[in-house]
């Protein structure tokens, strides 16, 4: 693994390796080990073209627990907002010797672009690109499901996961569909037709327009954030109508399996896609997801730049010449 751009880049074995590594790291931190010297001297850059405090601090915590030097490079107030191109930014980071670049960008494919153009030779980690993918979110979601329902072991065969809401604009949904399917889970997408992409029938999932019909079969329901702007783009008539049909409420919680869990990638719109009491019900693992996010991101950083990187190997070759 050189980069983590898309769940598609991972084999099932690699995905499980990441989860297993995250389990080890998570257990260690429960033992009280907060910091490892593993990435000492490595530079990790958080390159955020889009505001996302929670993802950025999660990656930052992960990198710092591994003793990496962390540079936060955010678009606001920097040359990025003055029209500096992705390419120039990448070349700056390259000159600074970034070992890993964690990129969040509002353009789908931006992370691929960064990695494929050889603008930088460090590892590229996609922290969300447009409406395409958010692989570490999917990994932490799979980790959370596996921890709660599979005792941290193996794959997710036999489980049914419902992903509910704005599938069309959701990179979380895209990465989760790829990963959960790879791990053997059955995925059902639950949304109004306006919020499902044309072509969704090629995703290998089932689709339901009725939350009530499928909620009882789900082992996990993943609520997606619904942006209020969507209403203005005619995706649904009113917030009230949306939340009646697709919101997670106390009544719907009561329809769920005893063992089932409720997830949300955050930030939540309480009262729109999820009611406050649902978010805090005993089925909710939303807070756990945040903690698991750090372990999963530590695992990804460790596996990408903990061992010899391409650059290390090239340097060694150079020394031998």
């Amino acid at each position: 693994m050189k980069n983590l751009l898309s769940i598609d880049d991972l084999t099932k074995a690699e995905a499980i390796e990441i989860l297993d590594t995250a389990v080890t790291l998570s257990n260690l931190s429960e033992t009280g080990v907060k910091k490892f010297p593993t990435l000492r001297g490595r530079t990790v850059v958080n390159l955020f073209f889009e505001d996302s405090t929670r993802t950025r601090i999660s990656f930052e915590a992960a990198a710092k627990r591994l003793s990496a030097d962390v540079i936060n490079f955010s678009a606001k107030g920097s040359s990025l907002s003055k029209g500096e191109s992705l390419k120039d930014t990448a070349m700056t980071l390259q000159a600074m010797g970034a070992d890993a670049v964690i990129i969040r960008h509002n353009s789908s494919g931006a992370a691929h672009r960064l990695a494929s153009q050889k603008w930088i030779d460090g590892a590229v980690i996609n922290a969300g690109d447009g409406t395409r993918e958010h692989p570490t979110q999917a990994l932490l979601d799979a980790f959370t499901i596996r921890r709660n329902l599979k005792n941290d072991q193996g794959d997710l065969k036999g489980l049914k996961v419902g992903i509910v809401g704005d599938i069309l604009h959701s990179r979380v949904a895209r990465s989760n569909v790829l990963l959960l399917s790879k791990l053997g889970a059955e995925v059902v997408l639950i949304a109004p037709p306006t919020l499902l992409p044309v072509g969704v029938d090629s995703w290998g999932t089932s689709v339901s327009y009725s939350f009530d019909e499928v909620i009882g079969d789900c082992d996990a329901v993943m609520m997606l954030r619904v942006q209020k702007e969507r209403m203005e783009d005619l995706f649904f008539p009113t917030e009230r109508e949306y939340s009646r049909a697709f919101g997670l409420t106390k009544d719907r919680i009561a329809m769920m399996k005893e063992s089932a869990i409720v997830m949300h990638p955050g930030p939540m719109n309480r009262g729109l896609e999820i009611s406050a009491d649902s978010a805090e019900s005993n089925k909710s693992v939303i807070v756990e997801q945040v903690a698991n996010g750090v372990s999963v991101r530590m695992a990804v950083l460790y596996l990408l730049i903990g061992g010899a990187t391409t650059r290390d190997l090239e340097t060694h070759l150079g020394e031998n010449k």
């Binding site: 494919g109 690109d129 409406t131 895209r174 992409p197 044309v198 072509g199 090629s202 995703w203």
Partner: peptide, 18 residues
């Protein structure tokens, strides 16, 4: 719109041009 709307755009998360 960024590309043809269909299977590929649905996966790439690029806005479709139907």
């Amino acid at each position: 719109a960024q590309m043809n709307e269909g299977e590929v755009s649905s996966k790439l998360g690029l806005k479709g041009w139907p």
